[in-house]
């Protein structure tokens, strides 16, 4: 970690008592049934993932806490958290986890569940729109720069319609369609 913990207040080990009646005991199974959830239960809360995370200092819920929250069934809190969207997908936590929990991949699974419930940051919805309308995130605008480098002005082989058709029929279509 590169900067001191910026948060004021009590140390992160002090947590509020958990109201058992609000827990969704199926959440862990939901994640476990997803592509990267196999090792979820192996987490022994060592917080190595948090130590490896370059941005955990600005997170309210740290990576190890999010994993714990998934196991406990705090579905709503996890899926509504900003943290899952701030995750850099840098895989440093996952690389270091001694229990082989696929921490980063599990956060990807969480984002998909959140997306299914339309809990997506506006800017990401914007990217989804770009992908669906243009079939790519970046379009060549400065084709003279390409010509300067003796490249074809347009990208050879590029064809975006098939891409657009595919994601129109999957969740992206719903996300973008639901916006209009």
């Amino acid at each position: 970690m590169t900067e001191a913990d910026e948060k004021d207040g009590p140390p992160v080990v002090l947590v509020d008592p958990i109201d058992m009646s609000k827990l969704d005991s199926e959440f862990r199974n939901e994640i476990k049934s997803m592509p990267y959830g196999d090792e979820l239960n192996a987490c022994f809360a060592c917080s190595t993932c948090t130590a490896a995370c370059p941005i955990a200092n600005v997170w309210t819920y740290k990576p190890h806490q999010l994993i714990r929250m998934i196991i406990l069934g705090m579905r709503e809190e996890v899926l509504s958290s900003d943290e899952i969207w701030l995750c850099l997908t840098c895989f440093q936590c996952q690389e270091r986890c001694p229990q082989k929990v696929r921490v980063t991949d599990i956060f990807f699974d969480c984002k998909n569940l959140a997306a299914e419930e339309s809990k997506i940051p506006e800017t990401i919805v914007g990217l989804a729109k770009t992908l669906m309308e243009k079939g790519q995130l970046y379009e060549v605008t400065a084709d003279w720069e390409r010509e300067d480098m003796d490249l074809e002005p347009a990208v050879p082989g590029l064809s975006t319609n098939e891409f657009k058709d595919i994601i129109k029929a999957t969740r992206t279509g719903k996300i973008v369609g639901g916006e209009e």
Partner: peptide
Amino acid sequence: GVACCGSPNLRAIDFMG
């Protein structure tokens, strides 16, 4: 006949896509 990979953003919101 290829286009974008979708980036990690597409993986985040639309795994099947």
